[in-house]
Every structure is written in C-alpha cells, then in structure tokens.
Amino acid sequence: MNRVEKFQLSQLLGQYLSLEEFCTCTQTYQKYVDRIDPYPKNLEETIPALEALCQHILAPVIAHFGRERFQLTYGFCSKDLKRFLSQKDPETGIKNGRVDPSRDQHMAHEKNRNGKYYCDRLGAACDFRIVGMESDRLVEWILEQRLPFDSLYYYGSDRPIHISYGSQHKRDIWTFTGRGVPTRKGIERWLEQVEPRF
C-alpha cells in the first residue's frame, strides 16, 4: 500500500472535496487516465496545503453558492500531469493545457528530483467556476468576503477563475490579454478593493 492509499483517496480535504476529486478533475487527466499518476508524492506537506486551500477559500465559496453549482476544473498538478499538460495532443496538434509550475502553485509542495520545490511560493491552487454565474461576479463576491487568497487570475466572464492560498496572502489579481500576457488593465475596480501591501 503506497502513501496515497494510506491517506485514502475518498478522504475529504475539507468539508466538501476529496483528494481524488482534487487530483482527477482535469480534462487532460480524463484523456490520459491510464498513463497519469495524478496524486502527490510529498504527502506530509502537500496534503496540509490542499486542506488549507479548501478550508480558507473553497469551503466559504461552496457554503454560499452550493456544492451542486461548484465545478472544479483544475486542482492539484502531479509530476505526470505536468508532463502531459505541456505536450500537444497527437491528433489535434493542440497543446493539452497551460502549465507554469514555478509560479501557479498547482503543484503545491511537490519537489523535483533534486529535492527543490517546483514552486517556491508554496501554498496550493485550483481553478473553478460557479455554474450559471459569470466569473466577474464571482471575483467580486470573493473580494467582498475578503477571502485571504494569494493570487487570483481572471480569464474572462465565461471561464473558470484561478485562485491560490499560501502563507503570503498577497491578494494579487491579474487578468490576461488576448495573447495570454498578464495585465492589470481593465480590473482597476478590483485592485482598489484589495488592501495595500506593506
């Protein structure tokens, strides 16, 4: 029995989400299910980081909007999943997904073969949407509730948001140009709601 089995895949990371859900929700995993190990290896550090994300960010969201409307689209990123996300689909030639492990916190506290964290920012991240709600309204609700996020990425009103929880609680908000370049243009109203950092 490996360490993930000992943790039990059905065990909840918080009130609502299991480790299995958090690790197997991506379309890329579903496409290559027999070739990807989606689970963390550094359980001692990664599981508490995922639990903190669920407790401080996702539990309040789900409690307010309802479990049936909450749709997790990208949770934890394992080393195997990272590899497949960065590859192109052999049939379509389109990249499976976007991945930026050094910054996006989806790999939580996982370490590379040299014992270094993939993401020095630590913490954990996920992407989700609320079914039937535009994502700009979701961002506004998160800001009104003063949730202690680290980074929030807004990709458009009809797309999921990315949110992370980590010890820095930077409350950084970014959106992206049509070419995928990070910008703060167009989200000034949200930036005004975020407390200044000292």
Rank of each mutant, 00 (worst) to 15 (best):
D120F: 04
D127G: 01
N2W: 13
I142Q: 06
D37K: 15
V139Q: 00
R98T: 14
C77F: 00
I47D: 06
W174T: 06
I94D: 08
Y74H: 13
N114A: 08
R197Y: 03
C126P: 04
T92Y: 14
F176L: 12
H162K: 11
A108D: 02
K185R: 15
E51W: 07
S10R: 14
P48F: 05
R146M: 01
H64N: 09
T24V: 08
Q27M: 11
Y154D: 11
D127S: 08
A52C: 07
F7H: 08
D150R: 02
D120M: 05
Y165D: 00
Q15H: 13
V131D: 11
C23E: 01
F76S: 12
P38R: 07
R35A: 10
Q11L: 07
T175N: 10
E20Q: 15
S135L: 03
K41W: 09
L17M: 14
M133S: 05
Y155F: 15
Q193T: 06
L50P: 08
F7K: 01
G156N: 02
G75R: 11
R197P: 02
V61M: 05
S102F: 11
A125W: 03
Q55S: 09
T73H: 12
P48N: 04
V61C: 08
K95R: 15
I163P: 05
P160Q: 02
L191H: 05
R146T: 05
P90I: 00
L191K: 08
R98M: 12
I161V: 15
Q55N: 08
I163F: 15
F128P: 12
E68F: 12
G156H: 04
F22S: 03
